[in-house]
Design a protein around this nucleic acid. Structure first.
Lengths: 346, 346
DNA sequence: TGTTAGCACTCTATCTCTTTGAGTGCTAAG
DNA sequence: CTTAGCACTCAAAGAGATAGAGTGCTAACA
C-alpha cells in the first residue's frame, strides 16, 4: 500500500463525488498530479479492489468507492481546507446577525444554515434546555377561566401553555400561587425537575388548592418538554432532488423520528460518519449521515448532523459541521457560565 | 347530452381515479349499472370527447377525463356521501379531544388531520389572529438585560419574543412601562395595530425612555406576526409518494410560500377546486388544489386546502374539507362572541 | 522490478425492428 | 337507437444488433 495507491484512491473518490459516474483508469491518469499511465493506474485500482476499497458495478465499467473506501478517504486521505476568515464571518452571519438571543434560535439558525450550505438535510437533536436553570415561572390570566403558564430558562427557552380552570381565581389566590411557584421552581436546574419532584409539587399544591391542578399539570408538561430531546430537521426537500436516494426510504426515515433521535444521541465525541446500507437501522440506501456533538461546558447537550447522499463532498461539509458545533458550544457555554437571575418587579 | 352520457362520464372519472389507467369502453360497459354494450359506450365516449370532457392519450388507448371533465364531475355528477355520525365523532376527536384551547392548535390539528385522512398535503392560510383582541401585554425580565415581551389575544394566540436592552430596568421603570402598554394595547383589536399606530407608540415611548426602544420594537414584531397570514403545510411527504406528480415541481411549489398564500387567499366563498396545468401560477402538473374558507362570525379569516394529484377521490375529500372548515368556523366564532377581558392581579 | 503500450475481451447502453394486444371508429344488421 | 363484427392504429414490450468505454493480460522497455 504505497503513497501512489492512496493518491489514486483519493482521486477516485473525489472524481466519483464530482461526476456521479464510475471512474476509469484513463480519467485518473489524465489528472494533473498523478503522472503515471492508465495501465499503471489500472494495476493499482485492481489492487485497491482486492483490498475492498473500490468496486465495479460490472466488469467493463469504471470503479466506485466502497464504504471502506469512503471511510479510509475521510479518516486519512482528504485534506479539508481550513476555513478562510471571510468564510467564517459569513457563517457567523448565518447563525444570527449579532449573536441570537436564545439558544433555541441559535440552533435553528445553525440547522437552516447547514441545510442551505450543504444542500442536504440538516438535523439536530438538542437537549440543552435540560441543562439550563429555570429563571422565571409566571401564571398570566388570559381570558375567562383561561390562564397561561410561562417558563423561561437561563438558556433563553420560553415555553408557554394555555390552561383552562374550573373557576376563575381571585387576585389573592393567583398571587399566592405565583409566589409559591417562584419560590419552588426559580433557580432550579431543569434536569432536577424530575417527574417525581413535579408530582410532589402537584400533591402539595392540590392539597391546598384543588382548582390549581390544571396549572400545575401545565407546568409539568412544559418541564417535560424542556427535558426532552427536541428534534429539528431542515432541508429534507434537498434530499428529494437527489438522484442517488430512494424517495420512499427518505420519507420513511424522516417519519421515524425516534430512530433518528436514537442515532443522533448515540454517545461519542468529535465527528462520526455513518453510512446507510439498508440493513442497519440507518436505512436510506446510498446515503450517509455526519454527526457532530456540541457541548455546554463539559456536558454533551446535543448533536448536529447532515444527511445526504454517500456521494458527498465530505471535505467541504465536515469543516462546516465542525465549525458550527464548536461555535454553538462556545456560545451556549458562555451563557452557562453567567446564569442570570433577577427580581420581577411587576 | 342525455343522462346516460353523464353517467358514463362519471364512471370514467371514478374508474380512472381508482386505477390510474386510461379506461376503455369495455371496462365501462361491464360496470353493473350501465347496462348497454361496449359499442354504445364507445359512441357516447366519442361524443364526450368532442365536447371536451374526455381525451385520449393516443388513438388506441382508453379515455382520461380532461380538466373540464373533472370540473363537470365535481360540480354536477358526483354524489358526496353525507358523513355518518360515527365519522363525525372521529373527525371531532382528530381536531382535539375535548375542543382545543387555542385557535392556533385547532387549526394545526385540522391540517394534520386532513393530511392524514386524504393522504395528500394539507395547507392552511390563517389570519384569524388579526381579528382577535389583544387581551394581555406583558414584559417579563428574563436575565441580565434580557426581557421577554408577551402578547396574548382573545383567540388564544400567545406570542413571545426575547429582547436585549442596553441597561437593566429599575422596578419602577418596568412597572410604569407595563402599565403604559396595558393601557394602550389591551382591548385593542389586532387589526387596528397598524404599523403607523405602532410607530406612534414607539415615538411616544422612546421620547420619554430611550432604553425601552427594543421592547417596543419587539412588540411591533409580534403584532406584525399576528397580522400576517400564517401559512402551515402538512403532509408534503404524501405528495412525494405520489406517482402522478413531478417531485421537482412539488418542491418548487411548496418552497414558494408567497405564491401559495396568494392562491389560498384569493377571495371567494364556499369551496373552490383549482387544477395545476403548468401554465398557471399553480404550477404542479397533474395536481389539483381544493380550498375552503372558514370564517369568524361573518368575516373570512382563513383558507383550508388540500393539494393532491388531479386523480383524486373528490367525493371523499370534499366532505372532509367542508366539515372541517364549518367546524372551525363554529368554534372560533363562538370564541369571538364572548371576548374575554380580565384584570391582572399579579 | 516497476511501468507502459497494445490488444483481445466483456458488458452495458442504445438503437432498430418486430410483435403483441388493447382499444378504437366505422359499417351494417337487428 | 343499439349492437356485433372487423379492420386499423399505436404504445409497450421484446429481440437482436451495434458501439464504445473500460478492463485484464502480455510482452517490451527502463
Amino acid at each position: 500500500m504505497n503513497e501512489r495507491k492512496l493518491k489514486i484512491l483519493a482521486a477516485v473518490v473525489e472524481e466519483y463525488v464530482r461526476t456521479g459516474e464510475p471512474v476509469g483508469s484513463k480519467a485518473i491518469a489524465s489528472l494533473p498530479d498523478i503522472g503515471v499511465s492508465a495501465a499503471t493506474v489500472r494495476n493499482d485500482m485492481a489492487l485497491l479492489e482486492q483490498l475492498g476499497f473500490l468496486e465495479q458495478p460490472h466488469t467493463s465499467a469504471g470503479r466506485v468507492p466502497t464504504i471502506s473506501g469512503y471511510r479510509l478517504y475521510i479518516e486519512e486521505l482528504m485534506r479539508p481546507p481550513t476555513l478562510p476568515d471571510e468564510e467564517r464571518e459569513r457563517l457567523d452571519d448565518m447563525l444570527g446577525a449579532q449573536g441570537p438571543l436564545t439558544e433555541e434560535l441559535l440552533i435553528q439558525n445553525a440547522t437552516s444554515a447547514l441545510a442551505e450550505l450543504t444542500q442536504c438535510a440538516a438535523v439536530v437533536s438538542d437537549f440543552s434546555p435540560k441543562f439550563s436553570i429555570i429563571s422565571k415561572v409566571k401564571v398570566i390570566p388570559a381570558g375567562k377561566r383561561v390562564y397561561v403558564v410561562l417558563l423561561i430558562t437561563s438558556g433563553g427557552a420560553i415555553k408557554n401553555k394555555a390552561c383552562r380552570l374550573e373557576f376563575d381565581l381571585t387576585n389573592e389566590q393567583l398571587g399566592k400561587f405565583s409566589e409559591y411557584l417562584s419560590k419552588n421552581l426559580e433557580g432550579v436546574s431543569v434536569a432536577d425537575l424530575s417527574d417525581e419532584r413535579m408530582e410532589n409539587l402537584t400533591a402539595a399544591m392540590s392539597a391546598y388548592m384543588m382548582t390549581m391542578a390544571p396549572l400545575v399539570q401545565g407546568i409539568c408538561e412544559l418541564s417535560r418538554d424542556l427535558r426532552q430531546h427536541a428534534l429539528l430537521v431542515k432541508g429534507e426537500k434537498n434530499l428529494f432532488s437527489c438522484e442517488d436516494l430512494d424517495k420512499m426510504e427518505v420519507v420513511r426515515f424522516i417519519e421515524h423520528k425516534d430512530e433518528l433521535v436514537r442515532l443522533l444521541d448515540d454517545s461519542f465525541s468529535g465527528i462520526r460518519v455513518m453510512f446507510g446500507e439498508g440493513n442497519d437501522s440507518f436505512v436510506i440506501g446510498n446515503s450517509s449521515m455526519i454527526v457532530s456533538k456540541y457541548r455546554k461546558g463539559e456536558q454533551n447537550v446535543g448533536s448536529l448532523g447532515v444527511i445526504g447522499p454517500m456521494r458527498l463532498d465530505y471535505a467541504k461539509v465536515i469543516p462546516y459541521l465542525e465549525y458550527f458545533s464548536q461555535k454553538i458550544t462556545d456560545l451556549i457555554s458562555e451563557d452557562a457560565e453567567a446564569p442570570p437571575k433577577q427580581d420581577d418587579p411587576t
